[in-house]
Design a protein around this nucleic acid. Structure first.
Lengths: 219, 219
DNA sequence: TAGATTGTTAATCGATTAACAATC
DNA sequence: TAGATTGTTAATCGATTAACAATC
């Protein structure tokens, strides 16, 4: 397998996922063909970039006149992104955010299944809970190994995050979505996506002020 | 006010917020000076970039020998990012995610206050709830105008998102953090930050598979 | 002073866009 | 066929890094 067979650029992958969702929408509207032009429009990128992305991802199946057949494109995107496989995850930390995620309906659409929650608080533990059991953190490593879980969501307090991360890494988890307010660093064997909500809000306020100042300066 | 007085690059602002948090940590460890070298280390960027960022943001206060005085730097970052001002937000949609956010403790640290929640479900509405009242969506526009709310969090189902966004824009909201699984587009008067959790998970799985394939190819 | 570190300029790198030949 | 659209190459743009003079 040559190295070019893989996509490294993070933004590219995110755009591919976005294309996929747009194509699904197009399809549900009864369309069977897509063009780099209207796909780009819907995704908020240029048509050049759409064609370039398809070219880089080796999924160019376009017809020089008739655009891209949506079905073929979707099939290839699914194969590339692996979205047809059921994706099993665990959630560590069953506080407000963790519990909300356990009940998040958006997962089903994306073929994601939450198979268990983990917590340290005895009041929250309930191995018989349906459909998602809540187990003690002490069982985390064994569960992950036995069930071959590759991706985990972290929603624990700041001071617990690093410790849990170590346990997950040792147990073989390879991807972590981190909601705890610490910027966790990825090791070589582990990919981490940090989502810091307060941080996003802070950014937002800066932009708002930025725009206000610009508007004030323009008048 | 000249145009250069503003920072446009999104990544730069995010790094500035990160620097701020690191400096706070340094300070709590008893340090009074920071260097582009150790700041960059902690932030995961090069020392060049740290110096460049400070230069672009006009907050260079470094001493050619003794590094940056942490207190002065923090003061200027706070002034620039406006983090010393109490930031009032509303949350629209009080389902699982919305409720979790209303109780999110990370906000307090960042000077963010949730002043009200809004929902359409009568069972959830409770104007007397403490400390955060939950009001009907019909009162959203009036509340936002009266209280001069500039930033809102959107945690409503996919099909309601666009409608609420219009109401928020019309009422004068300028920044929206969107958790609903639709990629909302920003108008000229409104900045939107989209967080799509299922989407992030999907990306994560792609990376995991990418790494596995690479590891397999290398052996 | 000598050594270390900043602030800035120039070089590099990478991603996006524009252009256009190929062709359906 | 003529017109439209792809796939790819070359040009552009912007962000990061390297280098180094200034100087504490």
């Amino acid at each position: 397998m040559k190295k070019q067979d893989f996509i490294v650029q993070k933004e590219l992958i995110q755009r591919l996922v976005r294309y996929k969702n747009i194509l699904l929408k197009f399809k549900s509207m009864g369309l069977s063909k897509a063009f780099s032009d209207n796909l780009g429009d819907a995704a908020g990128v240029s048509s050049s970039l759409v064609r370039k992305d398809f070219s880089l991802a080796h999924l160019a199946v376009g017809n020089k006149r008739g655009g891209y057949p949506i079905d073929v494109l979707l099939q290839r995107l699914d194969a590339l992104l692996g979205t047809q496989i059921l994706q099993r995850i665990v959630i560590v930390g069953c506080g407000k955010i963790g519990t909300a995620l356990m009940n998040y309906k958006g997962f089903a659409n994306e073929n994601v299944e939450v198979v268990a929650g983990f917590d340290n608080n005895p009041a929250r533990i309930n191995p018989a809970a349906a459909p998602i059991p809540i187990l003690p953190v002490s069982q985390l490593a064994a569960f992950v190994k036995e069930q071959d879980i590759q991706v985990a969501v972290l929603a624990v307090p700041e001071n617990a995050a690093a410790g849990i991360l170590d346990q997950l890494a040792a147990a073989g988890v390879q991807g972590v979505l981190n909601f705890s307010p610490v910027q966790l660093k990825a090791g070589s064997s582990l990919f981490i996506q940090n989502i810091n909500i307060a941080f996003e809000i802070e950014n937002l306020f800066y932009y708002v002020r930025f725009n206000q100042r610009r508007a004030a300066a323009e008048t």
